[in-house]
Simulated scan of single mutants.
Amino acid sequence: MKRALIWLAAAVVLTGCKIQEAEYFDPTADGYRMLQSANRHLTEAAAAASRVMLFNLYYSASDEERKTLHDRYFYTSRIVDSGNGEWRIIDRDGELVILTGGQPLATDGAVWRYFYLSPTYAETTIACRTNGDETAYDLRLPDGGGELTFTAVFPGRTQEDGATRYWCELSLTGSGACPAEKDLYGFDELRYRITGTLKYISTAPQRFELGQLELTGRIDGDELEATAQYLPDNRITIASGPYENDYYWH
């Protein structure tokens, strides 16, 4: 009887250990980690592109309109014309250099280059394509970071206090790879493909409002695949194999 009680106690302890481990098992955790790195890379690219698109409004405007546009979009920035088509947007935390080639970006065939000033700066290229009333922009990120296409709109919405709030909204498609410096978890390789158009709003710069990504990665010899879907309630659904979980941005 005593031996039976000892075996029963041991079985309870072992079973308890297994249950505790199961409580912390998350089969979509690697997919979420891939999404975090890809999201960081893509939102930084979208934030810079939206700033360039807003600057194009300023660049293309008359002197009278520029003051209004500066106060609307760049009220904490200093805009400097450095000559020869080079402009600088100077903020407290950084300096964005834009090489315009001397023509507005919304001209068919126009190509702008831009980069944030730093010891290791890398240029991004943005090119305009127009087809009738439709205008799209091709974005080539440095170091194989991605080849994206987007459209841009500039909504305004009246607030409760009567003021109008303005922003830039991008819709992005394309694919690419997350550079090592943007990778948060040390993946040997991390690639993304936009399978549902990403909707980016400049007033929410750290995430996308809608869209879907297919993610593939490799870490410690393991090959990983996942799908990430952005939903409008600050939620992301990660699917990996037969598993699916929801995560929330904080």
Rank of each mutant, 00 (worst) to 15 (best):
M1P: 14
R3P: 13
A4L: 15
L8H: 06
A9S: 12
A10I: 13
V12G: 05
T15C: 12
C17S: 14
K18H: 13
K18T: 13
I19M: 12
Q20I: 15
A22R: 13
A29K: 09
D30Y: 10
G31A: 00
Y32T: 00
Y32W: 11
Y32Q: 06
Y32S: 01
R33D: 07
M34T: 06
S37A: 06
N39M: 00
L42R: 03
A45H: 00
A45S: 08
A46I: 01
A46R: 00
A47V: 02
S50D: 08
N56D: 08
L57Q: 15
A61V: 15
E65S: 07
R66M: 02
R66Q: 07
K67Y: 11
H70T: 12
D71I: 09
F74W: 05
Y75E: 14
T76G: 12
R78Q: 15
R78N: 15
I79L: 08
I79A: 03
V80I: 15
S82E: 15
I89V: 13
I90G: 07
R92D: 13
E95L: 11
L99I: 15
G102C: 04
G102M: 03
Q103A: 10
P104H: 10
L105A: 05
V111F: 10
V111E: 08
V111A: 09
F115A: 13
T120W: 13
T120G: 09
Y121L: 11
Y121H: 11
E123S: 05
E123K: 11
T124C: 06
I126Y: 00
A127W: 03
A136G: 11
R140C: 10
G144K: 03
E147Q: 11
L148K: 01
F150K: 00
F150Y: 06
A152Y: 10
V153Y: 11
V153I: 15
G156R: 03
G156S: 09
R157W: 14
Q159V: 03
E160Q: 09
D161H: 05
Y166A: 08
C168N: 02
C168K: 08
L170T: 04
L170N: 06
G176K: 00
A180D: 15
Y185F: 13
F187P: 03
D188Q: 14
L190E: 01
Y192Q: 02
Y192D: 02
I194M: 00
T195Y: 00
G196I: 04
Y200P: 02
Y200H: 05
S202I: 07
S202E: 10
T203G: 06
A204K: 03
A204W: 00
Q206H: 07
R207H: 04
R207W: 05
F208E: 02
F208R: 04
G211C: 03
Q212G: 11
E214W: 12
D220I: 07
D220F: 09
G221T: 06
E223R: 15
A228Q: 03
Y230C: 02
L231G: 02
I238M: 01
A239R: 03
S240T: 05
N245W: 07
Y247M: 00
Y248I: 05
W249I: 03
H250Q: 14
